[in-house]
């Protein structure tokens, strides 16, 4: 597990559901096929209503669609509000974010299936923030997450906020997912 995660943040609101993260029409791509897997990055966050895409201003694309081959987002960290990842069980949601280049999400709390998928698939680290951070970051700010100290710094604004400890899923996150964990403990 890395000790720090640093990069630009993309800020979203509450109840960002999996249909907004990756719309159902793209689920015909098979994530087990490399070329198709990349396409999830291209369409990540493509159904977030524009006024709410990249707060506080909105109308900021998560992935630049003008380049037809682009599958990457310029952001590394997503800041969300309450109930991040609610809705369907599609693992394509954390996968799409990871394919776009997201390393971590920081939200007040998560829908459980999204959280489990993020942990068990080893796609990204989902941090709980005890306080609402949606109003403390602007999309495009540079942030740094210090995993040892459990804090996120807003480098652009010179502020710092505590994060909740990762808790009982640390062994799975550290191993890199459920398969790596199960091998490590001799289950499989």
């Amino acid at each position: 597990m890395e000790k720090t995660i640093k990069g630009k943040v993309y800020v979203l609101g509450d109840n960002i559901d999996t249909d907004q993260i990756i719309p159902a029409q793209y689920l015909t791509y098979n994530p087990s096929v490399a070329a198709e897997r990349r396409m999830f990055g291209r369409f990540a966050m493509s159904s977030v209503p524009l006024p709410k895409a990249g707060l506080p201003k909105g109308n900021i694309p998560f992935v630049d669609q003008t380049d037809p081959d682009n599958t990457k987002s310029p952001y590394a960290i997503v800041i969300g509000g309450k109930n991040f990842g609610c809705g369907s069980s599609r693992e394509h949601a954390p996968l799409a974010m990871a394919e776009a280049g997201i390393k971590a999400v920081v939200a007040e709390f998560y829908a459980r299936i999204f959280y489990r998928n993020a942990v068990n698939g080893g796609y990204l680290i989902a941090f709980d923030s005890p306080q609402r951070l949606v109003d403390k970051f602007n999309t495009g700010d540079v942030a740094e997450i210090d995993l040892e100290k459990s804090v996120i710094r807003n480098v652009t604004q010179g502020t710092e906020f505590g994060l909740a400890p990762l808790g009982d899923v640390v062994p799975i996150i550290e191993a890199g997912g459920i398969f790596a964990y199960a091998r490590k403990v001799g289950m499989i």
Partner: peptide, 29 residues
């Protein structure tokens, strides 16, 4: 592998939705 798997709790069982990785794990174990 579907969030509405919770439907089957109507029959007095524990049923819930999971992702592909978890389902892949269950397939093997």
């Amino acid at each position: 592998t579907d969030s509405h798997t919770c439907t089957h709790g109507a029959f007095g069982q524990f049923a819930t939705g999971i992702g592909n990785t978890e389902a892949g794990f269950v397939l093997g174990t």
